[in-house]
Computed example of a mutant assay.
Amino acid sequence: MQNVAPSATKAMVARTRALEVEGHDIVALTQGEPDFDTPVAICEAGVAAIRGGRTRYTPVTGILDLREAIVGNLQTDHSLVYSPDEIIVGCGAKQVITNALLATLDPGDEVIVPAPCWVTYPEVVKLAGGIPVIVDCLSSPTFKFTPEQFARAVTPRTRWLVLNSPCNPTGAVYNQRDLVALAEILRMHPHVAVLCDEIYEKLVYQPARFASLAAIAPDLRDRILIVNGVSKAHAMTGWRVGYGAGPVSLVKAMATIQGQTTSHTSSIAQYAALEALAGNQSHLDVFRDTFRKRRDFICDRLNQTEGLTCRVPDGTFYVLASCSALLGRRTSDGMAIDSDIDFATWLLESFGVAVVPGASFLAPGHIRLSYAASKDEITRACDRLQAACETLAVEAA
Score class of each variant (00 low, 15 high):
98 T>F: 04
349 E>G: 06
7 S>A: 06
253 A>T: 04
233 A>K: 02
78 H>A: 09
10 K>W: 07
302 L>K: 01
46 G>L: 09
25 D>G: 04
2 Q>W: 04
23 G>C: 12
25 D>S: 10
126 K>F: 06
48 A>D: 12
266 S>T: 09
197 D>L: 13
352 G>A: 10
330 R>H: 09
117 C>M: 12
319 V>P: 00
383 D>L: 12
213 L>Q: 06
96 V>P: 05
286 V>G: 11
80 L>Q: 02
322 S>F: 08
137 C>L: 08
288 R>V: 14
343 F>D: 07
228 N>M: 10
230 V>E: 06
163 L>H: 01
282 S>K: 09
132 P>Q: 02
321 A>D: 07
188 M>N: 07
103 A>E: 10
161 L>M: 04
349 E>H: 08
386 Q>W: 06
366 H>I: 09
381 A>G: 12
180 V>R: 03
146 T>K: 03
279 G>Y: 12
320 L>Y: 00
366 H>W: 09
350 S>A: 10
210 F>Y: 11
206 Q>W: 08
229 G>S: 08
393 A>I: 07
210 F>M: 11
163 L>W: 01
62 G>T: 01
9 T>C: 07
195 L>K: 03
65 D>W: 03
271 Y>N: 05
101 L>V: 12
384 R>N: 05
104 T>S: 15
129 G>Y: 00
340 D>K: 03
313 P>H: 10
350 S>Y: 12
254 M>G: 03
294 R>V: 11
105 L>G: 05
78 H>S: 13
